[in-house]
C-alpha cells in the first residue's frame, strides 16, 4: 500500500470552475459564440476589450482628482468639461460623457444609477458589486443620509446631500474636498488618499 499524500485525489475530486447558470449567462455566451462564428468579431477582439477594460482602475480617477487639487486651471477644465479633462489622462470615451461634481463645505455629492448600474468606467474601471445591488440603487435616492452613515460617513446637518441619478448619457465622478493637513503633499501622495468610494461619494478622503 502506497502512502497517500495531501496531493492525491480520487478521479472525481478535480476542482471544477464555477458552473454557468442562469438564462442571461447562457444568452450572453450564445451571442458571443454566434458573433465569432459569423465573423462579426474575433475572439482576440473580445479578449483585448476585456483586457483593456480590466486595465482601468480607480488609480486613474485618483490621479485626476489629485491634479485638480494641485492645478487650479485643470480643476476648472475638469468641472467645465469632464470628458476632455479625463482624456488628458488617456481615458477613452465612446458614447458617454463625464460630468464631475465638486464637494464643498456646503454640499456633498453621491452617485447612483437607479435604473441599472451606469458607472464612470472610463475613469474608475468596473463598479463594485454593492454599487450594482438593488438595495444601494433603491436606497441611495430614498434615504441617502442613512446609506452614507452605514458607509461610516456622517455629514453635518447643514451640509446639503446631492444625489445624482445617472439615467442617461452622462457618467458622474465626485471631486472630493482636499483634506486638511495635506498642504505639504505632492500630487502622487495626494492621489494615494483618493479611493474609489471617495469618487462615488459614499466616503471622503482621509489623511
Amino acid at each position: 500500500m502506497t502512502e497517500r499524500t495531501s496531493h492525491d485525489h480520487a478521479a472525481d475530486e478535480f476542482q471544477k470552475d464555477e458552473e454557468i447558470h442562469g438564462y442571461y449567462q447562457f444568452l450572453g455566451l450564445a451571442i458571443e459564440e454566434l458573433l465569432v462564428e459569423k465573423g462579426i468579431v474575433t475572439g482576440d477582439e473580445i479578449r483585448a476589450t476585456i483586457e483593456r477594460r480590466d486595465s482601468i482602475t480607480p488609480a486613474i480617477g485618483a490621479r485626476i482628482v489629485a491634479r485638480a487639487w494641485t492645478d487650479p486651471p485643470y480643476r476648472q477644465r475638469l468641472l467645465t468639461d469632464g470628458t476632455a479633462a479625463a482624456e488628458e489622462f488617456g481615458c477613452e470615451f465612446d458614447a458617454t460623457e463625464l460630468v464631475v461634481v465638486e464637494n464643498t463645505p456646503e454640499a456633498h455629492n453621491v452617485i447612483v444609477c437607479t435604473l441599472c448600474s451606469c458607472y464612470p468606467r472610463m475613469v474608475l474601471g468596473l463598479p463594485p458589486s454593492w454599487y450594482k445591488s438593488r438595495e444601494y440603487r433603491a436606497r441611495a435616492v430614498r434615504e441617502p443620509r442613512a446609506v452614507l452613515k452605514e458607509f461610516g460617513t456622517e455629514l453635518a446637518e447643514n451640509v446639503e446631500v446631492r444625489v445624482h441619478d445617472s439615467t442617461a448619457d452622462m457618467r458622474y465622478l465626485v471631486l472630493p474636498m482636499r483634506p486638511d493637513g495635506t498642504e505639504a503633499m505632492d500630487e502622487d501622495a495626494l492621489a494615494a488618499l483618493v479611493t474609489r468610494d471617495c469618487m462615488i461619494g459614499v466616503t471622503v478622503p482621509k489623511v
Binding site: 434615504e143 446639503e160 446631492r162 444625489v163
Partner: peptide
C-alpha cells in the same frame, strides 16, 4: 416623508 435636510436634492438626467 423624507428623513433628511430640507435642502437635500436629487439631480436626474431627463430627455
Amino acid at each position: 416623508d423624507y428623513d433628511g435636510e430640507l435642502r437635500d436634492t436629487v439631480d436626474i438626467d431627463i430627455y
